[in-house]
Design a binder for these strands. Structure first.
Length: 166
DNA sequence: GCCAACGTTGGC
DNA sequence: GCCAACGTTGGC
């Protein structure tokens, strides 16, 4: 689950312990929360739009079927005037802190790890703020957080633009 | 700030 | 139902 740390980061979750995951306004992301998640499911807390972006902590699903209250709040940026209280459109989950990781596992490390090849969050153009994670990938990231970061791979050669060869 | 990717909106 | 315009996400 992604969040921008400027808005709500792992330290906020450390402070409040449990947080309703409000503000998701993408149907696919909502469907993962509404239809796939179960109480007790493990969560990777990912910092997006951060420097650097990466996995900052672990959490778990504490409650499902949570009505996102911001959809009915005209003052909220997530207000949805088309959603009706008797048939709420935006359903989320309560996310409870498991623990903050001993260090942030940065996106470039995730990309460099062979164990994470094929992980959804690394796919090109992947923007969903809520997405499934394979158990093996979850475990690999927890293990990475317990080790020192691997040195960054050398920068790839120019990836676009015209060639200046010869 | 740029921009690729992609979701949503709305005219037709 | 098509699809162009537009808005958002999120890395860089």
């Amino acid at each position: 689950m992604k969040s921008e740390p400027d808005a709500f980061g792992i330290d906020d979750l450390v402070r409040v312990k449990v947080e309703p995951w409000t503000g998701v306004r993408n149907y696919q992301a909502r469907n993962f929360m509404r239809d796939q998640m179960r109480v007790g499911d493990r969560v990777l807390f990912y910092h997006s739009n951060a420097t650097p972006p990466g996995v900052a902590g672990l959490a778990r699903v504490a409650r499902t079927g949570v009505v996102d209250a911001t959809q009915f709040d005209p003052a909220s940026p997530y207000y949805d005037p088309a959603s009706r209280p008797d048939e709420p459109r935006w359903i989320c989950v309560d996310v409870e802190l498991e623990r903050k990781l001993p260090r942030l596992v940065a996106l470039d490390e995730l990309r460099a790890s062979p164990a994470l090849a094929g992980m959804l969050v690394l796919a090109r153009g992947q923007r969903l703020s809520v997405q499934p994670v394979e158990a093996a990938h979850y475990k690999a990231i927890v293990a990475m957080a317990g080790r020192a970061p691997v040195a960054a791979a050398p920068a790839p050669a120019a990836k676009r633009g015209r060639s200046s060869a010869r």
